[in-house]
């Protein structure tokens, strides 16, 4: 193969390789747009929140790692704290019907009331479309999007990948760090971590 024909192919290959990164909502890249139905019946478009910080929280109420953050009240505290400061908090349920964590709108509304959760909205994603768009692997995986629509954090909620409630108080919370640093006009020091937890129960989950 001649060099002159090889270069365009190499460039094409590079673009092919880079395209999935650009499209899949990786840290530093644009947050993929989505439209979803919330448990309160409203239609939520990510684009409507341009100009605000947005937190995405992958949720499965049967997952013990998620349970750690709800039973300790940590997640509710974060939701109240950040929505109180104008941040949009979207809880996302990507479990397929029949899988752990799948909820109908009514079930989710009852759950939110029972645990006194305070997200801006809980989005029902039974097809896993939003989950796959962000390549969400676990619950509770967390994503932070800045007002320009760029992903500034993607990963674990904190640095203690366990199910122990006693690990919550001493943990370094990466969502807090990312939002605090971004709001202070600083670079986010830890823009990505391994998202610990239960696997997201997509329709392709093994049985």
């Amino acid at each position: 193969m001649k060099r002159s024909t090889l270069y365009p192919i190499l460039i094409a290959l590079f673009l092919c390789a880079a395209l999935p990164l650009i499209l899949s909502g990786k840290t530093g890249g644009p947050a993929p747009e989505f439209t979803a139905t919330a448990s309160n019946g409203k239609t939520v478009r990510l684009a409507d929140y341009r100009g605000k910080y947005v937190v995405l929280e992958w949720h499965n109420n049967g997952c013990p790692y998620v349970g750690k953050h709800y039973k300790s009240g940590n997640m509710q505290k974060l939701q109240k704290q950040w929505t109180g400061r104008g941040v949009v908090w979207l809880t996302i349920l990507s479990s397929a019907p029949g899988e752990q964590g799948y909820m109908t709108a009514n079930e989710e509304n009852d759950y939110l009331a029972k645990v006194q959760a305070a997200p801006t909205a809980a989005l029902l994603d039974p097809t896993g479309q939003i989950g796959h768009l962000y390549d969400a692997k676990t619950s509770p995986q967390m994503v932070v999007i800045n007002p320009q629509g760029v992903v500034i954090y993607d990963g674990a909620i904190d640095d203690k990948p366990t199910t122990d409630l006693e690990d919550v108080p001493g943990a370094t919370n990466y969502v807090n760090l990312a939002l605090e640093q971004a709001l202070a006009g600083k670079q986010v020091e830890t823009p990505t971590t391994r998202p610990y937890g239960c696997s997201v129960k997509y329709a392709d989950s093994a049985h």
Binding site: H132, D135, K137, S199, Y202, A206
Partner: peptide
């Protein structure tokens, strides 16, 4: 290797 096509443990 365990898991699904998109999540491997």
């Amino acid at each position: 290797r365990l898991g699904t096509p998109s999540i491997v443990d």
